[in-house]
């Protein structure tokens, strides 16, 4: 009898485990922090990358006025006050300050001597995507580059980047 009760208990536990993620916040991705200025200034041109995707030294370098003048081929200059406000937000929540798993893994994968300016240049992100063939990313007109995280990571805006939430456009069976 106790085995039967236990079996029912196990089934109930599976169901409650499924619900657990809804009740207890998870820390697997990067912190889904938001900032209105960051959203409007950076998010107007590209996905507003969460600060946890790069260490603070990278954000500092990226947000230098000279760097913003030539922001990967575009001019992204902004007012001093706004720039500093966004920089403050990015540094405050940068990868090394985070408990979120992917942020810590990104931070650990970047040698202290390096200051990557692209998230896709970090060793962790490279390693996680190395098995994805070109045809699914670079040669896929609906994705084009790893930089467009949210084209495939359906919950990127929530800081969730796991396999379960990936949908590669045009490749349902990836």
């Amino acid at each position: 009898m106790s085995k039967l009760i236990l079996s029912v208990l196990i089934a109930a536990m599976f169901a409650s485990s499924a619900l657990a993620a809804d009740f207890f916040p998870r820390f697997k991705g990067v912190a889904p922090v938001k900032n209105a200025k960051h959203e409007s200034e950076c998010g107007s041109c590209h996905f507003a990358y969460q600060p946890g995707l790069l260490p603070s030294r990278s954000w500092r370098k990226l947000m230098e006025p000279k760097e913003l003048e030539d922001h990967f081929g575009d001019n992204a200059e902004m007012e001093g006050g706004e720039r500093l406000a966004i920089l403050d937000f990015l540094v405050k929540h940068a990868a090394e300050t985070s408990w979120y798993k992917r942020a810590t893994k990104i931070n650990r994968s970047v040698p202290k001597s390096q200051t990557p300016l692209r998230i896709t240049e970090t060793r962790y992100i490279k390693r996680k995507h190395e098995e994805v063939p070109r045809k699914m990313i670079q040669d896929n007109p609906r994705v084009r580059s790893l930089s467009y995280c949210n084209n495939c990571h359906m919950r990127a805006a929530d800081g969730v980047y796991d396999d379960d939430t990936v949908r590669i456009p045009g490749f349902p069976d990836w």
Binding site: L6, L9, I10, F14, S17, A18, A20, D164
Partner: peptide
């Protein structure tokens, strides 16, 4: 996009959590 609650990754998690709860029992 609708996230499925029944994936291989999630199953792994359910097994681990259930194992912990049963250890508590």
């Amino acid at each position: 996009f609708r996230e499925s609650w029944f994936t291989a990754n999630k199953m792994h998690g359910y097994l681990g959590l259930s194992s912990l709860i049963l250890a508590g029992v």
